[in-house]
Design a protein around this nucleic acid. Sequence first.
DNA 1: TCAAGTCTGTAACTTTTGTTACTGCCAGAT
DNA 2: ATCTGGCAGTAACAAAAGTTACAGACTTGA
Lengths: 210, 210
Amino acid sequence: MLQELNNAYGFIFEKELLEEISKTGILKSAREGEIIMDIGNYITSMPLLLEGAIKILREDKEGNELLLYFLERGDTCALTLSCCLGQTKSEIRAVAEKDTQYILVPIAKIEEWTTMFKSWRNFVFESYQSRLSEMLETIDTLAFMNMDQRLLRYLQDKAKINQSQELQVTHQQIAYDLNTSRVVISRLLKKLELEGKILLQRNHLVVYDL
Amino acid sequence: MLQELNNAYGFIFEKELLEEISKTGILKSAREGEIIMDIGNYITSMPLLLEGAIKILREDKEGNELLLYFLERGDTCALTLSCCLGQTKSEIRAVAEKDTQYILVPIAKIEEWTTMFKSWRNFVFESYQSRLSEMLETIDTLAFMNMDQRLLRYLQDKAKINQSQELQVTHQQIAYDLNTSRVVISRLLKKLELEGKILLQRNHLVVYDL
DNA sequence: TCAAGTCTGTAACTTTTGTTACTGCCAGAT
DNA sequence: ATCTGGCAGTAACAAAAGTTACAGACTTGA
């Protein structure tokens, strides 16, 4: 575990902190599609992503979903973090976007390390900062962009996260992430294909315009 | 200044911290409608709200605006905070919603106090937490609600912030905050009036349904 | 190979939101 | 009193998004 930890966090944490993490953290893994954390769950530890990617979703009372953002190696979820410190239930759902490895750090340590390690303090602040930025971007897309632009952006983000222009995804899955209907997505995807920005195939599409 | 500081923060900060703040902070005030901080400004200090209220806005390249949330006494702006620590430009605009008093604390102190005072550390974390919550709520309204529900919610929030059911506001101003057009707002307000939830008058409306 | 289920494409229609245009009303200035 | 500018109401239309329905293509597995 220390090895993987070093790969993902070696450049930002000092040696003692890395040792602390590998001593108290629990190594976990999740397969693509697995729910790592769900709305209403009590949160007792925070995740440090080693490998893979996680998507963070919001849901309303009627069960409508919306993708908030993706997490990658070296990220943690500031929403989880804030739930931890506030001892509240999770407001979001976390689903493995790819096969994923992460370390769970118990709440108790989070505060402790904040006083002990400057690098940890910075990490926590930077996490909050990047999550706030991502939320701002999400708000921008919702408030200022039409569905066709949101869709293209979504495909580009997803291609980036998966490090591949080819996405294994159905129209229905996209519709869930963007909180719209399958028919709307099919319509707009066809439009994007006619514009030469993507190529459509069954269960599968290719993003040209990155 | 120590007096006002005590009123707003006396219950959460220890005496030494309050003294530090009143020693290094600068007391400022803004009249209703005044822009306290604008997009692109470099941020060199963070505000602690003593009295009044501030609204936080987002803007896109075309100049479309969107209200993110309100700040009240005892709040600080976590977005500003994250800009401070990241030494980046402001991503948002802050406008005085009412006549407002606040203290500006220089960046340098923020980190310093984080190591020195537990109450400060908690305050900073809680600010991040509440700002993340507010952003989540904003996202919920954008993603899951129609304009009529967003409008009603906006009026209720504004009534709460102004501690009055009577709002001095024009349809155009509401339209700016919700990033839509005046005609749409007039239409929906009329609908709300017919439903008995509000009363319309020139430059002025009353919210019944709180 | 056939049945069942999933996925995509498309048409037709509705609802919601945005746009343009015009009206009358009110308040303040001249 | 009249002019002016800002504000609100409304109609008519356009665009975007959501809904319902159905058909054809592919996939799986019995």
